[in-house]
């Protein structure tokens, strides 16, 4: 087996019906992995930008980028080598947990408390995916009730 590597690919596509299915169908049809996928329109243009985190051997990654490029509504495909990558996570804690500790931890990971209710505290962090992993491990002891991750977005340096 060839070595499998994690890769971040950005895809610029025309904003049109079913373009997202074209992309996800391609991944499922050809047996490629999707770890995460985010998509949003690019302001003031007819395009959207997708950020796909995937994994595969060098050959598979090359095929993924080529096959993506073959789709008619795809304008550009970037297979990032040198990039800035961020991901956001929202975490819900019981109000009984130590809010000061949580806030301190959050700030170390580019985050803060964003909502405090009668029963719950909601915190957010935005950092590199690996650091978000780390953060989520650490906060386990504060009994998080729910965690939502956004999937990664990336920009070439």
């Amino acid at each position: 087996m060839e070595k499998s590597e994690r890769r971040v690919i950005s895809v610029i596509v025309v904003n049109e019906a079913s373009v997202l299915s074209r992309i996800t169908d391609l991944f499922s049809g050809r047996g490629y992995n999707i770890t995460s996928l985010t998509v949003a329109p690019i302001p003031e243009s007819k395009y959207s930008r997708l950020t796909i985190v995937t994994s595969g051997s060098v050959r598979v990654i090359e095929q993924i980028t080529k096959q993506l490029h073959k789709l008619i509504p795809v304008l550009r495909v970037y297979e990032h080598a040198d990039l800035v990558e961020k991901e956001m996570a929202l975490i819900k804690f019981p109000a009984s947990e130590n809010i000061t500790d949580i806030a301190t931890l959050c700030s170390a990971y580019n985050g803060k408390i964003v909502n405090v209710g009668d029963n719950i505290i909601i915190a957010m962090v935005a950092d590199e995916p690996k650091r978000v992993d780390n953060f989520l491990k650490i906060i386990n002891k504060y009994n998080p009730k729910e965690i939502v991750r956004s999937g990664a977005v990336a920009l070439e340096r």
């Binding site: 080529k66 096959q67 490029h69 073959k70």
Partner: peptide
């Protein structure tokens, strides 16, 4: 003509 065929 198909780049995806090359080195596939």
């Amino acid at each position: 003509i198909d780049p995806a065929s090359i080195s596939k």
